[in-house]
Design a binder for these strands. Structure first.
Length: 287
DNA sequence: GATGCGTGGGG
DNA sequence: TCCCCAAGCAT
């Protein structure tokens, strides 16, 4: 039995009951889940997806919502730019695609917030087309099982794409199932931090295990979060989301000790159109 | 191609 | 406490 069929069978038996996997979920709703899942764990997305879909079940309804409503409904999923782009995509779909999500990869990639991974995921999971779905889970599983290394390269290159494409089954349905299976396998078994190798059904095929689990080099430290503009942006957005009216600069300067940094973070939020300046020079979510 | 962009949970 | 990481994208 090939690794592909083993993981696909495993997925069929043990897949987590995530709400966007239920029958009757539309391609648009799959897209909403994919945007929410960008850099956010599925367990945190699930309840937010349910309430979002209950409020805005299709592109048209979201297109008619205000940015402020979308940002507030996004709640604390992080990266609120995603909420804005999702709403912009809804408007584009209504205006340019008759309210229907495109089935074409190039058309999907033109939409704000949809990149290489998300376009491939839509093709596979919403339309059951053959595509090369390469997220962090798939890259990690391929690196370990086929190349015998612990960690994938920092940047995704053409060699990785070519190799991954060669693993995708030729028929559309099998390809879509494989992508779902290998992603799930990376998310719950072949995890980054504490892989469950004792429960792994392909341990005898794993090049990483056969090589004795060699550790990869520690990569350069990421940006520290505490004290960054990112943190201040989050605090400002939280203040504006909970406010019942617009806030003055003097209000916002109270949310962080460094008022220079508040100014800088606020400027970037305005530039991102996550914050609006009123005629009176006050601040609020974009109406 | 490196960097910026939230938030929360786990070790 | 601190650090890592989580279905990436845009610039």
């Amino acid at each position: 039995m090939t690794v592909q069929s083993a993981l696909t069978r495993w997925f069929g038996k043990t897949a987590r009951p995530l709400p966007w996997r239920e029958s009757g979920v539309t391609p648009w709703q799959i897209l909403v889940s994919e945007i929410m899942l960008q850099q956010t764990p599925a367990i945190r997305v699930a309840p937010q997806w349910l309430s979002w879909i209950a409020r805005w079940p299709d592109a048209k309804s979201l297109a008619n919502a205000s940015p402020a409503d979308a940002i507030r409904q996004w709640d604390r999923l992080g990266y609120p730019n995603r909420a804005l782009r999702l709403r912009q995509t809804a408007q584009r779909i209504v205006e340019e695609h008759g309210g229907q999500l495109p089935r074409d990869e190039a058309e999907l990639r033109k939409l704000p917030g949809i990149g290489e991974y998300t376009a491939a995921a839509i093709l596979a999971f919403a339309y059951e087309q053959r595509s090369v779905v390469l997220d962090t889970n798939v890259r990690r599983v391929i690196t370990r099982v086929w190349h015998g290394r612990e960690r994938q390269p920092a940047t995704l290159g053409s060699e990785e794409r070519t190799f991954a494409e060669g693993l995708v089954p030729s028929t559309a349905k099998a390809a879509a199932r494989w992508s779902a299976a290998v992603m799930e396998f990376g998310a719950v078994i072949c995890t980054a931090k504490k892989p469950q190798c004792s429960h792994c059904i392909i341990k005898n095929e794993c090049a990483w295990r056969l090589a004795g689990f060699p550790a990869s080099e520690i990569h350069t430290r990421k940006q520290q979060f505490h004290g960054t503009d990112r943190q201040v942006r989050g605090i400002i957005m939280q203040a504006l989301k909970t406010a019942t009216k617009s806030l003055a600069m003097s209000d916002l300067e109270l949310v962080w000790q460094d008022s220079q940094q508040v100014h800088r973070a606020l400027d970037s939020l305005v530039s991102d159109e996550l914050v609006e300046v009123t005629k009176n020079g006050r601040y609020r979510l974009p109406q």
